[in-house]
Design a protein around this nucleic acid. Structure first.
Lengths: 82, 82
DNA sequence: AGATATTTGTTCGTATGTATC
DNA sequence: GGATACATACGAACAAATATC
């Protein structure tokens, strides 16, 4: 169970927990970070989970997202298509 | 066609219709209840159909689901494996 | 063996509505 | 009014197992 702080948005608190797990190495590159997993572990709504993931992706660039597949720990892979 | 009520979620209204059919005997034990069938008959999205089925299974225990096969009317069969 | 159809499982993208602060 | 957070509901893509032909 997480004990929510009142002065920080939940999406941000969740993102911080995940960020720490990534930076500590607990979450290895390539690991799946699905919205469902966040919803279940933290007991949050999907919108909230998405906001956490968006922040990790767009602000911290610790993960990348593949539509219909999921979000994965690590830097955005280059699209090396010709 | 179903006339949706505004004050009850669609997934719940669909589940209620199915529940009545099961309890009235219209749907016999063993009958397949596929997501596609619900989508077509009620004009709902797959997610919504899945939520109706999940409720009938997990809350009412009127059906059981076999992955890659479908959901069937009746109690969850015992796994009689040795 | 192989192709096809059916069916569930999982996942993201988007939008709307309600309520609260 | 804006940000947060919940639930609902549409769509879409892909995987995997099963059944049939």
């Amino acid at each position: 169970m997480i004990e929510w702080r009142e002065d920080v948005p939940r999406w941000r608190q969740v993102a911080n927990v995940i960020r720490r797990r990534i930076e500590s190495g607990e979450y290895r590159p390539g690991r799946l970070l699905s919205e469902n997993a966040l919803m279940q572990e933290f007991g949050i709504a999907r919108n909230t989970a998405r906001k956490s993931i968006a922040w990790l992706r767009e602000e911290k660039r610790l993960i990348y997202t593949r539509p219909n597949l999921g979000s994965f720990v690590g830097p955005e892979p280059e699209d090396d298509e010709e």
